[in-house]
Simulated scan of single mutants.
Amino acid sequence: MSDQKTERLINLTLALLSSKRYLTKSEIFKNVAGYSGSAETMERMFERDKDDLRNLGVRIEVRALDPLFEDDQGYLIDSKTFQINPNDFSKEEILLLTMAANLWHGSALQHDSKAALLKIQSLDGLVATNSVASPVVEDNEDSKKLLLIIDAVERFVSLEFEYKGTVRQVKPYGIYTRRGFWYLAAQENDVVKSFKVIRIGEQIKVISKSQGFTKPAEFKLSTFIEGLNAPTT
């Protein structure tokens, strides 16, 4: 599946999941990024996208909006029936989900994109977002930095970077968001600390092989976030 199609499916999922009412196709084509071309082209894209989502186990509800016009249909994903295994997503797709949620934040159709995102992401997984403020992630150097960090967390690779004017060597355990910012939870000198990602220098070096360290079995990202009593740098 191409990155463009993946991003469109994610945008469509979040739009239908976040909306409190049934959306018409015209509203979807107008507001969901990724639909373009003639009316027939967008119609074909939408039909294929619906089939792809249903094959993934996503239940899309369809309802006639006007009893006199059966062709005037609306579409919605009921959050109560929405279940996707977060392990089905790659680290790149997790970031796309985050970016898509932020695109919907503040839009006329969005009411609860953060809750939608939380249903997809696993709090004890690689990435955790809180329900207070989801930070904006743009497709630039910031997203590249996050991808590198997520990859390091996933492969248990130690990192070296400049932070507040000092070179730091850490073992990354996970990333999370708090008060609108991304943070890296990582062990430095036998202490698990929080590093604000925007303060991490652009030059991030990998200083160990894959599986270069072992994360303690008792470490849980959700517990770390809830405690917030670990040193924050």
Results as ranks from 00 to 15, higher is better:
Lys91Trp: 01
Glu226Gly: 11
Gly125Trp: 03
Lys50Pro: 08
Leu228Ala: 14
Ile198Glu: 10
Pro231Gly: 08
Ala100Ser: 15
Ser2Cys: 00
Asn11Glu: 12
Leu16Trp: 07
Arg21Gln: 11
Thr214Phe: 06
Glu7Asp: 08
Phe82Ser: 01
Lys119Phe: 00
His111Pro: 04
Lys91Arg: 11
Ser18Gly: 13
Asp72Lys: 14
Asp112Thr: 07
Thr233Trp: 10
Thr13Met: 10
Asn140Gln: 05
Tyr75Thr: 09
Tyr35Pro: 05
Asn55His: 12
Glu61Tyr: 06
Gly74Thr: 01
Phe195Tyr: 15
Val192His: 10
Tyr176Met: 09
Ile60Gln: 00
His105Asn: 15
Glu70Ser: 13
Leu68Arg: 12
Arg168Gln: 14
Phe213Val: 05
Arg48Ile: 06
Tyr22Val: 01
Pro172Lys: 11
Tyr183Val: 10
Leu147Phe: 04
Ala39Ile: 13
Leu103Ile: 11
Leu117Gly: 09
Asn31Thr: 13
Arg179Trp: 09
Gly201Gln: 01
Tyr35Val: 07
Gly125Pro: 03
Thr13Ala: 03
Asp49Gly: 03
Val170Gln: 06
Asp190Thr: 06
Arg155Asp: 08
Gln83Lys: 07
Ala152Glu: 03
Val167Asn: 08
Thr223Tyr: 11
Lys209Asp: 14
Ala230Leu: 11
Leu17Ala: 14
Thr129Phe: 10
Lys164Trp: 05
Ser222Leu: 14
Ser122Asn: 15
Asp151Thr: 10
Lys205Leu: 05
Arg8Phe: 12
Asp49Val: 05
Pro67Val: 09
Phe213His: 06
Val197Cys: 05
Pro172Met: 08
Ser107Cys: 07
Asp151Ser: 12
Thr233Leu: 08
Thr223Cys: 03
Arg54Thr: 15
Arg8Cys: 09
Phe69Ser: 13
Val153Leu: 01
Ala100Val: 12
Ser19Asp: 07
Asp151Arg: 06
Tyr35Trp: 10
Lys30Cys: 10
Leu228Trp: 14
Lys25His: 05
Asp142Lys: 09
Val62Ala: 01
Arg199Phe: 13
Ser38His: 05
Pro231Ala: 12
Thr98Trp: 05
Lys193Glu: 13
Glu43Tyr: 10
Arg48Ala: 07
Val137Pro: 00
Tyr173Lys: 12
